[in-house]
Structure formats: C-alpha cells, structure tokens
Design a protein around this nucleic acid. Sequence first.
RNA 1: GGUCCGGUAGCUCAGUUGGUUAGAGCAGGGAACUCAUAAUUCCUUGGUCGGGGGUUCGAGUCCCUCCCGGACUACCA
Length: 690
Amino acid sequence: MPRRLLVTAALPYANGPIHLGHLVEYLQTDIWVRFQKLMGNDCRYFCADDTHGTAIMLRARQEGRSEEDLIAQVQQEHEQDFADFGIEFDNYGSTNSPENREICAKIWTSLRDKGLVKEKQVSQLYDPEEGIFLADRFVRGTCPKCDAPDQPGDNCSSCGTTYSPVDLIDPKSTLSGATPEEGSALHLFIELEQLHSFLEEWTQKSGALQPEIANYLKGHFLGDALRDWDISRPSPYFGFEIPDYPGNYWYVWFDAPIGYMASTQQWCDRTGEKFDDWWRSTDCEVHHFIGKDITYFHTLFWPGMLKVAGYSLPTKVHIHGFLTVDGEKMSKSKGTFVRARSYLDHLDPAYLRYFYASKLSSKIDDIDLSLEEFITKVNTDLVGKVVNLASRSAKFVRKTGLSAEYPDDGGLFQQAAEAGEEIAAAYEACDYSRAMRLIMALADRANPYVEEAKPWELRKDEAQAERLQDVCTVALNLFRQLAIYLTPVLPQLAKQTGQLLGEPITRWSQAQTPLVGTPVNQFKHMLQRVEPKKVNAMIEDSKEETGEGAAAASESQESKSQEFVDKWNDPGDSLEAEPLADECTFDDFMKVDLRVARIVEAEQVPDARKLLRLKLSLGGGVYKQVFAGIKAAYDPEKLVGRQVVCVANLAPRKMKFGVSEGMVVASGPGGEEIFVLSPDEGAKVGQRVH
RNA sequence: GGUCCGGUAGCUCAGUUGGUUAGAGCAGGGAACUCAUAAUUCCUUGGUCGGGGGUUCGAGUCCCUCCCGGACUACCA
C-alpha cells in the first residue's frame, strides 16, 4: 500500500536570489521526495515564493516599479535556478495568489470563530517621510542606558540593554533618515496561550520534532505562558488586506505557511485531485523541511493554526542547520557567498547534490562545504568509483550485449541487493550521509571484482569471449545497482544509466533483479571530474566589488594576460555530438546569404508537430514565409517583433503546409532545446551577415 | 549567563542495548596494473577514543567533574 506524502520546503523570499545556503534545503527535500517516488509512494513536493512584507514593498519603491512586477521577475529567476539544479516541484506557486488569499480568509474565520483573535493598541514609531510604521530594525539611535550612538532599535550592541525603539534618544529612520514620530495603532493578535496544552502535547509527544527541538521549545517557550502573536500590519503594507479589518494586512508570517496549502490547491485544480485528501486526511502524511532559523513559526504558530482550522497537523518537521564554506559563514568579500546561478555558470549541479547528500544527516548541525573536500570527494567517489565501473566495462559488451543469464559473481549482486533495505532506511530517516557511505562501500567491493577478472586480458582471447561478456554483465549490473541507489541524489546519472542499458530506472526495487540479455549502448562520459580551476573561477565571480575584492579582481586580470584561463570552461559534448564539418572556402561561405530579418507574424500550424509559420520582413516591403521547426521551444506571440538571422537565398521548398522560403538560424539539439540567434542591439533589418 | 550538540588517526566521520587486539574513506608511504575520465587494485604508516575521577570482572560506550569548539537563546518574535 503506497503511502501518501505531502512535502514542502520553506518558501524562499522574493527579495533576493537563491544561493548555496538555500540549496541545502531544496536539495535535501528534493532527494527525499525523489526517494519516496522511487519507492512507489504517492509523494508530492510543493513550494512557492514568499512575496509579502515591508522588505518587498520598500525594494519595489526603490526600483520604481510595482511589487507585482518585482515578485514576478524574482520568481522566474528562482524557478529557473531550481530547475537547473534538478529540483522538481509538483507545483511552485506564490503567496500572492488568489488561492492563498482564499485559504487565508478561511483560516482567519476559524481563528475568529474560536475566539483566538483580540485587539490591542501598539505604540510604534512612524516615518513621516516614507509614510509607514517602522519595524524595530528600521530604527537606530542612541542607547538610553549607556549613550552609545547609532544602536539598533531593539537592543544595544554596546551595553546589551534591551529596550523599545520608542526609548531611543534621538532616533532616526534607517529608510529616510527622518526623525520618527511616535504613533499608535490597533493591531490584531492571536492568543496562542489558549492552545498551550495542545502545543505542549504536540511538540513533546507527537514525534513530529527532532528531540533537541522538542527540548528547546519546552525550555524556551512552553515553560511560561505563550505570548500573543501580532498578526496585523497597518497600511501601507504589501500583502492581503484583512477582510473584516480594512486598512490592515496580515503579517507576512501569517500567509507564508498557508502558501503551502495554496500551492497544493493550484496543483489540485490542475490535476483534478481533492484538496482535502491531502490536508484533511489521516491517510496523508505532511512533511515540512525548514531551516533552524524559522523553527518557531513552524512548530508553534503553524500547528496551532492548523489545529484550530481543522487541518492535518505536520507528521514531521525536518529541521536542518546552516551552510558554512571552508568552516566560515558565507562571505561576500571572500567570494563564498555563491549564488545558485554563479555555481551553474561553472559547475555541474550533480557535484553539489552529491556533496550535500554525503554531508547531511537528520541532525540540525550546520554543514560545511570545504572546497577542497568537495573536489576530492566528488572526483574520488563519483568519477573514480561509481562511473568508472561502467566506463571500464561497457565498451567490451557494446557488440554482444549482456549475458542471457546472470553469471556467478561470488554473491556481490545479492549482497548489494540486500543492502537496499538499509540504504532505503537511511534515506527515509534523512540520514543521507549514511546512505552515501553504504553505497560507496558497495562500489568499493565492485571495483576489485573487475580488477581480478581482468576483462582487458580476456578480450585478447577469442576463446574467452563468453567469460568476457559475463564479467562485464556483472560489472554493469553492479554499476546499475549503484545508479539506482543514487537516483534520488543523481537523477541525471540514473537517466544516463537507463539509456546505456536500455531500461529506464523508475523503481527502487529494480536493484533486486539483474538485467540480462539486453543490448548495451555506446558508453558516453556521464560526469566530468571537478576541475579546481572552475571552483576557483566560481569563487572569483562571487567576490563582491568592495575595496579588497576589487584589488583581488584586478590582480587576477593581470595573471590572465600572462596565462590564459578559460573561466567558462564550456564542456565539449555539443562539439562531440556534432563534429566540425569539412572545411569550406570563403567563396563557399558567401554563397549563403544571411540577413537580419524581423518576425512580423508568427502563428501555430495546427496540424504540424514541430513547425511554426513565420512571416519575416527583410525591410522595404520584402517578406518571406518561413516554416521553422521551433514549435516546442517558442510561443508565437513572443517571437513577433523580434530580430533574427535568416538564410535569405535558400531555394524555396514546398512543405505540407505551404512553401517555405528560407530558414531561421538557431542552435541546439532540437525539441525544447532550440536557441534562435538574434543580432545585438543596433542591427538593421535587411543587413547582410558576413 | 542559560539551554543544547559535539570533542575518536593529518582531514571527514562510523562505532548499535558497555564485552575479545578501536574502524572506514581521503590524504601520506610502498608496489602492481594499464580496460577506464592520470581512473583502479594490493600492501602499509598513523589513535593513552579532550583531561581527571568513579561504577563494573570489563568503558570510546554509563555517572560526576573540568577543559575546548559550535549552535541556539538572553525576556523580541
């Protein structure tokens, strides 16, 4: 009976790019979800951008655009980063969605009906220039106790006194520099204390929390009466207006976790699933993955809200620690504050997926990305041990395929099959470092087998052909087991293994039965080794242009002139896939007339599988109709108006849907991976490309 | 200051309910091999398990105490 699992990772804030620290969580969660799916469980991964709050409002103001515009752009970047790291969500939503507004209202009504909401007067500083109430962190001033100047609004970094920003001497708004006025507004609060006994019971006995977290909550919060939670913010605020309290908005932390549900709702609407099967069913487990910084919200308020509104409580809240790089906090000046995009510009996401997996446990300890360890671990384990198994045996059975019956391997396959249970248990418990250790131990047994069997000698003797096939059958099956066990971590490797051996990896249980009698495809490199210079290039790229950083950057510029370093280091697979054509002369090249053209019309061709019909303008009223095979990659609307490069003197060709009078130049293997070329800004329609 | 976690080979860590001479990977040293992405395999150096005390026939493992490192927290959430 498959389990039904709803899984979430914390919602990234729409105020900045994804970095390597964020990825600890999204990868940890993605691995767990992929594992569950591989086990055949009905598991869904939901996430969304967290879009509300003062910070978003201020940034949008500063950039002179609407909040909606800002969060749309950031969300697009987030989703692209996740996709490129192989993080697959079943739905990725936004807290600024109609679904979220609706569910917020529902939960709000429940809280009101159960009498948990009360009003209180709150005195707060007000910035008359910006026209907003100031959170403590937006006020600085002189400490009332020790007279230290320029202290934060909540406590003094000099003498340690805590105070209210109202008490500061000579307070200033950090936003405008204006002197804040003391104001007072009515806020709505949730009386959490009413749920005290429930939360006590749930945090201590439900098994949803790691023991150290349960203990922490008990010591820090549950020992006393729980404080009221200030849940409203007066206008102006970017968020949802509270329906029965006009001019006030729900605090961002109220609607953020509800975003998990809204994202689920969107998925349900799309797939025809029932929302209540996921959020109001005892058959469905709810798992949240979060960082230790937001423990409070997810272990007290959130279960409280769920309880009151009658939804399922979290089955487990999995809490992880932070990321350090080379033993220190990520630092912008040292270049260790690496954005997801910067990483992707230089390195294969598989490296990071594996490295994090090899470090993660179910503890809340911080994990360290030691760059040196990163390089050696990935190269030794993945390239040297795992991929090497396939690399050293696949080509010997390219012609014959695998043996018809699985040969005697001294029990290796059986042992590895039996290890599957223990490895699965480690994944289930989020103890990935243990899972990786167990898998590598299997790899350490597989390589000596090949060493002793010496396939490279067997192949020299015709009479040993059968034995050679058997040896490679064993090696490739042991390799395949590893690939299956690593599938949650390295989906790309699993895919490649499926292609090599002609059977896709879709189930954990495939590791129990060897593959026999099937063809073996040509072996292609599955993973490049990590090159230290690429890691260095990534760090260099991440250094912020502060005084120190700028000096270091210009230094590296100098060294570049002496010894050429290609910091991009593009892989050679595309060139390999399509080698250079025969040499041609300049005259040959000039036969092809490439022109800058503008797409003036673009439309779907209803019956075509791959084609779009384009009308290209070469200027001066000269038009060409072109059928381009880019349907899967481009929306027609988005192409209209765009400048492209076309082959203008191509012989017209009659196609099923009409005559095509040219070609639009594009690169890529096909399908969705097509990249139409455009000239740089300033090119004029009709110009020839030389 | 409080709470929690950790301190095992140069590095990263494993050591289940206390039980024989404390393990792995990497790094170091030596050798073999050449199929493989200078990959692999074999052999090998290396540890008073943070210090001290206790319980026990027996402690890395339990208790006490001290030292060191880290995280959280300090009446804000």
